[in-house]
Design a protein around this nucleic acid. Structure first.
Lengths: 163, 163
DNA sequence: CAGATTGTTTGTACGCGTGTAATCATTACT
DNA sequence: AGTAATGATTACACGCGTACAAACAATCTG
């Protein structure tokens, strides 16, 4: 896949001399976005790797990580995981059967049940975080100044609203 | 979206003045990696959006895009899509029934069938590309110099092997 | 207290993707 | 020619996640 070979066309908005990358700001944003997707999604084997390491589907890994991060009621978990309450019961049942999760009564509302992670569950979630959070070598091997630039820019990009 | 382009003085160890970000190169890489995952995966509603727009599962969208990009044999498609041949038969059957895809005989090997996209299929794939390739507003609104930096760095990151 | 509401659970049906075995046509090998 | 190997297809069983209806317990409201 060769990108535009008319390298150093200089239009008013966004030409970058000497890098072979030209175009309007919108075109540059699209190019960057495509590369970011490639970088992240091509590493998406991590999901399968994580699921295999924990011996459960990635959805359950996601649920476990969410529970380990913050104990919550069933309905909260279902909403945040984008699932429905009935299926979350099945998932939490499965995680509980594995000894990774426990249901505790809500202090005031006896209808609710607070789901928390056991020490084993927290450890498993940490293992998942470690696998998913390991950057690809190409990123780790980036030059220090480029990495610092990424650090600064991505901090701004994920600052608050992603709108 | 204001970007503090001046607040990035880095010392020898990688500390970033004014942003509260310090640490070794590995820690910085992990932080950047986490933010990149957030940025891309939080936009993963795009998958559902694309699937809804085309009225098919995202896996079939993926298959259609792959076919539109390069006509191939069934076995090639199955391998590249990480699926098995039998299921790909079902998927291509479905896409063909929708008039998006056609099976053509291989010029030399009559066992093979070359799957190509019809004009309608190419148009649908282009629509999917448009949705998936639209960068999030926060990226499009990035300051020009930061965007140029991302352009350069991501080009290096996705140059060849992702290791 | 009666009725409506909320939180959770059980059950059921469905679509999707994986995996495997078996079948058929075509090609390659000896 | 005869046999093995390859490409595609059909068929079936399975796990996963979604969606919906219904039941039950506990809480809130009239």
């Amino acid at each position: 896949m060769t990108t535009e070979t008319d390298a150093t066309r200089t239009d008013a908005t966004g030409a970058v001399a000497g890098t072979g990358q030209t175009g309007t700001a919108g075109e540059t944003a699209e190019r960057v976005w495509r590369r970011l997707r490639t970088l992240v999604l091509e590493q998406n084997e991590r999901r399968k790797e994580t699921a295999d390491a924990l011996g459960m589907s990635f959805f359950r890994v996601k649920a476990l990580r969410r529970i380990a991060a913050r104990p919550s009621r069933m309905s909260e978990l279902a909403a945040e995981l984008g699932s429905d309450r009935p299926y979350l019961t099945v998932v939490v049942d499965d995680l509980a059967k594995r000894g990774l999760v426990e249901r505790h009564p809500h202090p005031t509302d006896r209808r609710c049940k607070i789901v928390t992670a056991t020490p084993e569950g927290a450890a498993a979630a940490a293992r998942a975080d470690a696998i998913l959070g390991t950057p690809p070598p190409v990123l780790r091997d980036l030059a220090a100044d480029d990495l610092a630039a990424l650090d600064r820019i991505t901090a701004a990009l994920t600052a608050s609203g992603e709108g």
